[in-house]
């Protein structure tokens, strides 16, 4: 990993921790952005952690870009020494794979896809070497995921799977982005899964849909009454496949205000994880199933 510092115009400093994605790069970017926040440097207006980078927005009338850059560089050492341990949550997200709504949408935008003859899941399964779509879906939901970035639009999480590099699923984005994606679509691009928080444009492959809102500007959804956005970087997610009947049932519960997402508080230690991935994930699942 080689840290690269650069300016985004006169109001942003962009710090790329690594060109490639890894949990190490994510943890370092999170630690560094936390260190910048804790330093309470006057003039900073936004701190945005991302997958393997972070960005600071500042007011150059208050602090000169060069001075701020020098301050941020001094925090890199502190971030390297920081414990790679997070007190976080594991949240279960029900997913209705191969649902009719994303299917209708992917058929509508077929000419923008690498494989106009199949579905997004059939394409993803094939290029990742799976014999069947079902096997691919199993690989997608059997191990937990890490929220490595929140953004793009309102509260959309990017998720990175907690498995060995060689088990990571990779798919390209659409050749040309769609102008429409159903709200709460579970998507995939590069090595990241995502949940589209709102309806709109998108370039990720579409695998399914969740009945569980993750963004509510009106804050009517019971579990979004404290804040309109569900996810924070560092959250852990476990997909759970559901069928149409359960999808409809959960939608109704959300509507009635009786739906309670399954979640548990967990500690995640990067070194422990790297030493034994299977055991770490089993412990995460134990915590979730005990919730």
């Amino acid at each position: 990993m080689k840290t690269r510092y650069t300016f985004g115009g006169d109001e942003h400093i962009y710090v790329e921790i690594d060109e490639e994605m890894s949990l190490d790069a994510f943890f370092k970017s999170l630690s560094m952005s936390n260190a910048v926040r804790e330093a309470e440097i006057e003039g900073i207006t936004e701190i945005c952690p991302a997958n393997a980078s972070f960005q600071v927005k500042f007011n150059p009338d208050v602090i000169h870009p060069d001075d701020l850059l020098a301050r941020i560089k001094t925090l890199e050492e502190k971030a390297i020494q920081a414990e790679k341990r997070l007190n976080t949550r594991i949240i279960e997200i029900p997913v209705y794979y191969q649902d009719p709504w994303t299917h209708e949408t992917l058929m509508r935008f077929r000419e923008r896809h690498q494989d106009p003859t199949g579905s997004d899941l059939e394409y993803a399964a094939r290029i990742n070497g799976f014999d069947s779509v079902d096997d691919f879906i199993t690989a997608h939901h059997s191990q937990p995921w890490f929220v490595s970035m929140v953004g793009f639009v309102s509260g959309l999480p990017f998720l990175y799977q907690l498995v060995e590099r060689e088990k990571q699923l990779e798919v390209p984005k659409y050749l040309r982005p769609r102008t429409d994606t159903p709200k709460l679509t579970v998507g995939y691009g590069g090595c990241f899964s995502c949940i589209y928080s709102v309806r709109g444009a998108g370039g990720y492959q579409m695998f399914g849909i969740t009945p569980m809102p993750i963004y509510d500007p009106e804050q009517k959804v019971t579990y979004l009454q404290d804040f309109m956005v569900l996810f924070r970087p560092g959250d852990i997610v476990k997909w759970r496949p559901i069928d149409r009947a359960e999808y409809d049932d959960i939608c109704q519960q959300v509507e009635d205000g009786t739906y309670i997402p399954k979640m548990a508080n967990v500690e995640f230690d990067l070194d422990t994880f790297n030493q034994d991935i299977a055991k770490t994930n089993a412990r995460l699942m134990e915590a979730l199933n005990g919730a």
Partner: peptide
């Protein structure tokens, strides 16, 4: 292309965008 970036040479591992970028 770095791992996780996607295959097009204009792709990067998803990062933050600056206003005006």
């Amino acid at each position: 292309q770095p791992f996780g970036a996607g295959s097009d040479p204009s792709n990067i591992v998803d990062g933050c965008y600056s206003y005006g970028s």
